[in-house]
């Protein structure tokens, strides 16, 4: 069985049009053309370790001390808020705990760890990523998702989904008008076929 698999699967990425993994650090969409990009394929195949090293070089700058400060502050605030709410739920005693005891302990841990992180990470460190102008793209993406959730019960999923696809492809992704509109319609039609016709789910739909 395994031999069969080996025989069949000698696939290497063809040159042009061989755009690779869709996500982050790998080759992605470049300019506004959107057509099949002719990427400069690496001559040698990078080992995973080399690849990881490359990614680290190319990675966004770490979040930095300010980010650490604010993040720790937020988690500290949530921890304290949860502690207060837990006390309101009644703590009881360790032998006979009431609903508030466990959340109180957990949120206490959050608060303590947040303070620790505040101190330990005050010089920054290597984790996280700085926000950049491009972060607005993520914010727009988030906004469109919220819009979808708001509109779905009113209009069904088809129209908001088409709009979302279009916005993501055209504005956030840099695809052409034609591809964006075409693909949006095709994709939503496919989802309709799968979720409504095929699986007979009750997702709000207009048609």
């Amino acid at each position: 069985m395994k031999h069969k698999a080996k025989g069949a699967a000698t696939e290497t990425a063809p040159g042009p049009g061989g755009t690779a993994a869709a996500s982050g650090a790998a080759a992605g969409v470049s300019g506004p053309q959107g057509g099949t990009d002719v990427e400069a394929v690496a001559d040698e195949e990078l080992t995973p370790e080399e690849l990881a090293a490359r990614w680290e070089e190319d990675a966004a700058p770490p979040a930095g001390p300010q980010a650490n400060f604010w993040a720790s502050l937020v988690t500290l605030a949530i921890g304290i808020a949860a502690m207060v709410l837990s006390v309101q739920l009644d703590l009881g005693t360790p032998a006979e705990p009431r609903p508030g005891m466990w959340p109180f302990l957990v949120s206490l841990v959050i608060a303590v760890l947040s303070v620790t992180q505040l101190v330990v990470g005050r010089r920054g460190g290597r984790d996280g990523e700085k926000f950049s102008k491009l972060s607005w793209l993520a914010a727009v993406g988030f906004a469109t998702l919220l819009a979808l959730v708001a509109l779905m019960p009113l209009l069904g999923f088809e129209i908001p989904a088409v709009l979302l696809c279009f916005v993501w492809m055209k504005i956030l992704g840099g695809e052409s008008w034609r591809s964006s509109i075409l693909y949006s319609l095709i994709i939503v039609a496919a989802f309709y076929a799968i979720f409504i016709l095929g699986l007979q789910t009750t997702i709000p739909h207009l048609f």
């Binding site: 019960p153 009113l154 209009l155 069904g156 088809e158 129209i159 319609l185 009750t202 709000p204 739909h205 207009l206 048609f207």
Partner: peptide, 16 residues
């Protein structure tokens, strides 16, 4: 196309 689709509102949806 979009308005034609909208006109199909009466067809079997479950919204509203």
């Amino acid at each position: 196309a979009a308005s034609a689709l909208l006109a199909l509102t009466a067809c079997g949806g479950n919204v509203g």
